Amino acid sequence: MITPFLHEERRGRVAILTMDRAESMNAIGTLEDCDNIVDTFFRLANDRSVSAIVLTGAGRAFCTGGNIKGIRDRKGIGPLDQPDSTAANYRRGVQRATRAMLDCEVPMIAAINGHAIGLGLDLACVCDLRLAADTAKMAASFIKVGIIPGDGGAWTLQKIIGYSKAAELFLTGRTFDAAYAQSIGLVGDVVPADQLLEKAIALAEEIAANSPRALRLTKRLLREAQHGRAGDVLELSAAFQAIVHETADHKEAVNAILEKRAPVFTGD
């Protein structure tokens, strides 16, 4: 039986997902790995008991991207026998994984515990927030393998750090450390490696303490606002606001503020 690529744990309303291929530094090598990512994020997106997700890696790496040996041998998630087959393989594999993560309305935190290279860095960029261990190394290094970011990274990275800096990282392929990543706004906090996961979980729990429906709609609104016109975003904001005003959690939040107590949210 194949071990799932993602190992899942729960802590209350927080789902902790660990990329579980420590022996290969959590490289993604097969379509089955991608299917597991797709299935996991689809399931969590439809699980109303989940209000935050933490994504991290087993061992000393977050994710070192695609499997280089598989690329050389034309097996797995990369090139196949013909260009049209290769394009279909990317759509079928890593791009489905990217889409599943982008479509997930649950707030996501990447806990970058070690090397985040190529596809690995792009997976972190799909998350809403990023924390990094002080020992982490990162690179948008597709150019070093003579290829381009085929997984959506050309869209996500520049959304976070802007076109010019993203272009610099993609066109040089250079490796950089966590302190530099923080200086360009790629990661929020840099923490000692042995504290990273607990810091990420604590942040996830702080997020998950809020109204579940409002959390998901807030994330969706933020994502839509990245590429929407101001007028369209205002219309969507009005629609979402009309929804959450009718929730039991909104009424509970108002009453809790007036009664000077902590709210108890149910997701209703």
Rank of each mutant, 00 (worst) to 15 (best):
G162I: 04
K159A: 15
L123R: 06
L55N: 01
A242Q: 02
G162C: 03
L44T: 07
D20I: 00
W155Q: 03
D33K: 06
Q82H: 09
G57E: 00
G152L: 10
H245M: 11
R10F: 11
A214M: 10
E246H: 06
R48T: 14
G153L: 08
D84S: 05
R261E: 01
C34P: 08
Y180W: 07
G29E: 03
I112R: 10
D194V: 04
D103G: 04
C125V: 08
L129M: 15
A139I: 01
D177N: 15
N89D: 00
D249F: 11
T175D: 01
C127S: 11
A200M: 09
L121H: 06
F5I: 04
C34Y: 05
A204L: 04
P212R: 07
T175E: 14
N26T: 13
A22C: 07
V38G: 03
D194L: 11
G66N: 12
R213V: 15
T266G: 14
M25N: 11
A154Y: 02
A58S: 13
R92V: 01
E235M: 02
A139T: 00
V50R: 12
A178E: 07
P212A: 01
E206R: 14
A204I: 13
G29N: 07
K251V: 13
V264L: 10
A204D: 06
A179L: 15
L6G: 00
Y163W: 04
L119I: 04
G29D: 05
P79C: 10
S85C: 02
I148D: 03
N26W: 07
F41P: 04
Y90D: 00
A239H: 06
E205M: 09
R13T: 15
A225T: 03
I184D: 03
E23M: 04
C125P: 10
Y163R: 14
N26V: 09
T64G: 00
A15R: 12
V233I: 14
A132Q: 05
D39N: 14
L196E: 01
A204Q: 01
D232Q: 13
F240V: 06
G57P: 07
A167W: 02
A15Y: 13
I207S: 13
K219H: 11
A178F: 09
N210F: 13
I68R: 01
F240S: 05
A208D: 09
D103T: 09
A140M: 04
H245A: 02
D103R: 12
A110R: 06
I16T: 08
L169N: 11
R99H: 08
D47C: 11
R216D: 05
R11V: 11
L215C: 08
A132H: 07
K251L: 08
D177M: 10
A154D: 09
A193K: 10
R21T: 13
P149T: 02
L221R: 13
P263I: 12
V190F: 00
F142Q: 14
L44C: 06
A239P: 00
V94Q: 10
R60K: 13
R91K: 07
N89Y: 03
A87T: 06
H7S: 14
C125K: 03
R213I: 15
G118D: 05
G173A: 09
N36D: 15
A242V: 01
P212Y: 09
L80P: 00
S49L: 12
I28L: 15
Q195I: 04
I161S: 12
